[in-house]
């Protein structure tokens, strides 16, 4: 009976979703409403208005800035939720997988990780800083940065990781994304424009261009650093809990 009910619910969902898919405009049709108004505007004026030669970055940080600001807040809230349930890592009680495992890390693994980490971090920095000219940006670079920290922690343990990045440094950096977004948003208010606008008609063309690039860079670096540190913090607070 229970299985039948589950199956029935799934079947109803399936029919509803399929009918929604049938109603969708055909993929790639130039007559779609989005292709007639939104896409041409992005493609023709995106570089000029968005300030980034990579149009995706321009759309994410400029046209849909509010949306991205919300996403950044979601990541921060996720960290807050994890910390509320699991609590932050503690130097005194923290153990690591390596410390508790009967076999220590092998020489090959430690050497390879030591050699690879600088290159992974370099790639992360490149991805963050080149977000406005090539694919990538704050989220992507930050995720790579966070993954590099996680790998370091997996091999060398939580204690060395926490000695490298102290809690007093970590806590402000976790909110760097929202902070940089807010700062970049308030720049518009000082010029008599709306919140989070990138267009300042009061300035000359060159000054506008420079300011736009500076704002993009500020937001990208903020998002990148915060995403990386938040991933590291979530991992560390998960790793800390003793075996139940």
């Amino acid at each position: 009976m229970r299985k039948f009910l589950i199956f029935l619910c799934l079947a109803i969902c399936w029919v509803v979703f399929l009918s929604a898919v049938v109603e969708m405009p055909p993929f790639g049709d130039p007559a779609n409403i989005t292709n007639r108004h939104v896409v041409p505007r992005y493609l023709e004026e995106g570089v000029e208005e968005g300030g980034a030669s990579n149009i995706v970055t321009g759309i994410i940080l400029n046209y849909r800035g509010y949306d991205t600001m919300g996403e950044v807040t979601v990541i921060f809230t996720a960290l807050a939720g994890v910390l509320a349930v699991l609590k932050r890592e503690d130097v005194k009680t923290s153990t690591t997988m390596v410390a508790t495992s009967p076999v220590g890390p092998s020489l090959i693994v430690t050497t390879v990780v030591k050699l690879l980490i600088p290159f992974i971090v370099l790639f992360a920095v490149y991805t963050i800083l080149h977000g406005d000219v090539s694919p990538g940006g704050g989220f992507q670079g930050g995720a790579v940065f966070g993954a590099s920290m996680i790998h370091y922690t997996l091999i060398f343990g939580l204690l060395t990781y926490m000695r490298k990045i102290r809690l007093a440094v970590k806590v402000p950096l976790e909110s760097a994304a929202i902070l940089s977004f807010a700062i970049a948003g308030f720049i518009g208010l000082f010029f008599g424009q709306k919140f989070l606008t990138f267009l300042m008609p009061a300035l000359s063309h060159e000054a506008q261009y420079l300011l736009r690039h500076a704002m993009l860079l500020l937001i990208e670096v903020g998002i990148g650093v915060a995403t990386g540190i938040i991933f590291g913090s979530i991992f560390a607070s998960l790793e800390k809990v003793e075996r139940i």
Partner: peptide, 24 residues
């Protein structure tokens, strides 16, 4: 852009978080 995120978050970070949770 999405490919980079998926490779880093989906294949890297999420898997490690799952494995940690399983080990606990």
């Amino acid at each position: 852009d999405l490919a980079l995120t998926e490779a880093a978050v989906g294949a890297g970070v999420t898997t490690v978080l799952f494995l940690i949770t399983i080990s606990k």
